[in-house]
Design a protein around this nucleic acid. Structure first.
Lengths: 170, 170
DNA sequence: TCGTTGCGTTCCATGTTGCAACCCGCTATG
DNA sequence: CATAGCGGGTTGCAACATGGAACGCAACGA
């Protein structure tokens, strides 16, 4: 059956997954960053089927992660380039790389590395808190409703137990 | 047809996507973090089908992101809990939340927020470089082969053009 | 006894995937 | 001037995967 869409979910994560929760989309974005921008390039490097690729590109363009830009007129040919939104997504994907390295490869045997374009220094992504700069430890984090969480108290209480235990003024 | 597996891909990203490149798996992990650990809980909160849930849980346990732990014997009932690997994955998922917020919701209207368990302070995930602490900007980053990249020069050169242009000693 | 909770499995109508084949406009080759 | 080739798709099809509902089944509880 049709894949469930999370486009209207009250959850930032779910919405992101609507686009990035897929095997191909992230890889296509990666290829764009590598400098592969054309249909044939994706085909070659990813081993994806032509029809699937067509669909994915269309989706990524619709969702604003890529722009389709002509590079010649006769015959019309296009390149796909990352938008600011696409770059934002890429950052998160880069955060995914150390995870893969850590759990799928021997230490020091990663197949791919990131480098700074200016200095040539190696770059290792980590997820930290913006204010403290401390790496995130989910065990020390809890989740609470934000400004636009649906206001059914029953739902909220059940879902964010810890939050309501803490904010006992209610 | 069957989804292509990236389990043997020479790419950390692809391998990560083998597990996380899916709509449900990340959401299941999230629920575990919320304190939802049982079959019925997932069912309720996610609106996922029972059969799909069964499969996903099995996969997540096989892949070592969750452990299945009995909480009663008669009849045998189980809870699913995050492993260290699962927590690692969660960190990356948390990095995905600001992306969803930024591009899918009005500013200041996010439905969900993260807080520090100790201090109660709000937490905002960012992806930075481990050494400099600077936020990642993909435009300033290029990708090169690591220690275990397959040694076909043809492939490498084509793929990591920028890397080889830079390291012109070859 | 009957109903309910918790956790699955089985079945089925649709979708989605991957692969191969085809198409179409243009260009380079002989 | 035929024809082969390239870039960029669309179409057709068989093999799965998905979501929904129905069924199973053991242990309570009333």
């Amino acid at each position: 059956m049709e894949r469930k869409s999370f486009a209207d979910a009250h959850c930032s994560l779910a919405r992101s997954l609507d686009v990035l929760g897929d095997w191909w989309n992230p890889l296509i974005l990666r290829e764009c960053h590598y400098g592969v921008n054309r249909f044939d390039g994706f085909l070659q490097w990813l081993g994806i089927g032509r029809n699937i690729l067509t669909r994915r590109l269309k989706l990524l363009v619709e969702q604003g992660l890529l722009v389709k830009r002509p590079y010649q007129d006769n015959p019309p040919r296009f390149e796909y380039h990352l938008t600011p939104k696409g770059y934002d997504a890429l950052v998160v994907l880069m955060a995914l790389m150390p995870f893969g390295e850590k759990w799928s490869f021997e230490r020091g045997k990663e197949p791919i590395r990131l480098y700074d374009r200016q200095t040539g220094r190696r770059i290792r992504p980590v997820v930290v808190d913006r204010d403290t700069g401390e790496p995130l430890d989910p065990r020390e984090i809890y989740t609470g409703p934000g400004p636009s969480f649906p206001r059914s108290a029953r739902v909220r209480r059940a879902r964010f137990r810890e939050y309501y235990e803490r904010n006992t003024e209610e």
